[in-house]
Simulated assay, not measured.
Amino acid sequence: MKVGVLGAGSIGSVVAEALRDGLVPGAELAGVVDPALSPAGLPMCALPELLSTSDLVVEAAGQRALTDAGPQVLSAGCDLLVVSVGALAADGLLEKLLAAGPGAVHLSTGAIGGLDLLRSAALLGQFERVVIETTKKASSLVQPWMSEAEAEELRQATAPVELRRGPAREITAAFPKSANVAASVALAVRDWDVVEAAVIADPAAPLTSHVITAAGPAGEYRFEIRNRPSPQTPTSSQVVPYAVLSALEALATPRAVFR
């Protein structure tokens, strides 16, 4: 399976290097597209060239890149592995991608687990309550929409503070680099309206925490995930590119794997 990578930042570069070095059985690197970055040792190219040589493209360039390039990837006949799942909070984008084929859409689990169980439980009946609370180091949660005073207060915080709580779509839009997980949970339970999300800033948090609680006809669930932040990009978790590599391995060499 020839894999193209869209984005050469802290996620895309790890994925591309692993593919280049032959660390993903059954898969090889076709090329990398990133207008802003050109890491040494990676075969950089333009998107049309990438689409002509790839079976699958990994989107690791952010929500805008998924919106702009995703339909092109799929209409060219390439499969698409989405990392910026939060972009799918936009009304109609998932439907647009699914209709753009013949390429297929795959979603990366990213920084969280439990999505398979939530997806299975949702088939039994609609969830009554789903909450995801994300806690990150305060300084990594400064957003462009904050005033300078709000941003500085967050940087200087000495105790945990809940920044925002609300519907998954709202929180994903407000924290696009930190709340992709809320979108992932909503897609897993097949109901954007039932998922409540919260983002909490903690100046002392050594790890990024995601606590998911859910109740429905199948039972009650509680998952807590505590990830180390990416050293290069603290808004993301260090495990994210390895979730992508795990997905690529499962797609390239199907065997006895959990899906």
Rank of each mutant, 00 (worst) to 15 (best):
residue 61 A to R: 03
residue 235 T to Y: 02
residue 41 G to F: 06
residue 81 L to R: 09
residue 69 A to E: 09
residue 198 A to N: 03
residue 217 P to I: 02
residue 114 G to N: 05
residue 232 Q to I: 08
residue 27 A to N: 11
residue 196 E to D: 04
residue 107 L to A: 08
residue 85 V to N: 00
residue 172 T to E: 07
residue 5 V to F: 05
residue 243 A to D: 12
residue 8 A to P: 09
residue 72 Q to R: 13
residue 241 P to G: 07
residue 170 E to I: 09
residue 18 A to T: 08
residue 40 A to R: 12
residue 159 A to S: 15
residue 124 L to F: 10
residue 206 P to R: 14
residue 45 C to I: 03
residue 251 L to W: 11
residue 158 T to E: 13
residue 77 G to P: 09
residue 52 S to G: 14
residue 17 E to Y: 04
residue 73 V to I: 12
residue 171 I to N: 03
residue 1 M to K: 08
residue 173 A to T: 07
residue 121 A to F: 06
residue 144 P to C: 13
residue 104 A to R: 15
residue 156 Q to R: 15
residue 251 L to G: 08
residue 49 E to F: 01
residue 131 V to L: 12
residue 38 S to R: 15
residue 167 P to W: 01
residue 30 A to G: 04
residue 65 A to F: 11
residue 61 A to K: 06
residue 201 A to L: 10
residue 204 A to S: 12
residue 259 R to M: 09
residue 177 K to F: 11
residue 189 V to H: 02
residue 92 G to K: 12
residue 246 S to D: 15
residue 133 E to W: 03
residue 18 A to M: 07
residue 139 S to T: 14
residue 153 E to S: 15
residue 121 A to S: 12
residue 257 V to D: 14
residue 114 G to F: 06
residue 232 Q to V: 13
residue 112 I to E: 01
residue 55 D to G: 13
residue 181 V to Y: 02
residue 32 V to P: 09
residue 59 E to Q: 12
residue 48 P to F: 08
residue 161 V to F: 05
residue 127 F to D: 00
residue 26 G to I: 07
residue 35 P to F: 11
residue 47 L to C: 06
residue 156 Q to D: 03
residue 25 P to N: 02
residue 44 M to H: 06
residue 134 T to P: 00
residue 109 T to S: 15
residue 165 R to F: 00
residue 144 P to T: 13
residue 224 E to F: 03
residue 175 F to D: 03
residue 105 V to A: 14
residue 215 A to Y: 02
residue 31 G to K: 14
residue 5 V to E: 10
residue 17 E to K: 14
residue 62 G to I: 06
residue 100 A to V: 08
residue 250 A to N: 12
residue 52 S to W: 00
residue 200 I to G: 05
residue 146 M to G: 10
residue 190 R to P: 01
residue 104 A to W: 06
residue 230 S to Y: 03
residue 217 P to Y: 01
residue 164 R to S: 11
residue 97 L to M: 09
residue 250 A to Q: 14
residue 7 G to K: 08
residue 212 I to W: 07
residue 49 E to A: 14
residue 159 A to H: 12
residue 129 R to S: 00
residue 200 I to H: 06
residue 241 P to C: 13
residue 140 S to Q: 06
residue 103 G to D: 04
residue 197 A to T: 04
residue 174 A to C: 04
residue 182 A to S: 11
residue 227 N to L: 10
residue 150 E to G: 11
residue 133 E to N: 11
residue 13 S to W: 04
residue 199 V to S: 02
residue 178 S to V: 03
residue 96 K to N: 08
residue 245 L to Q: 10
residue 34 D to R: 06
residue 196 E to P: 00
residue 200 I to C: 07
residue 108 S to K: 14
residue 102 P to I: 04
residue 169 R to I: 01
residue 204 A to W: 03
residue 237 S to Q: 05
residue 95 E to G: 09
residue 4 G to Q: 13
residue 238 Q to G: 07
residue 70 G to W: 11
residue 25 P to F: 10
residue 107 L to D: 10
residue 137 K to R: 15
residue 43 P to T: 05
residue 218 A to Q: 04
residue 232 Q to M: 10
residue 129 R to W: 00
residue 28 E to Q: 13
residue 81 L to G: 04
residue 221 Y to R: 04
residue 208 T to F: 01
residue 146 M to H: 14
residue 149 A to P: 15
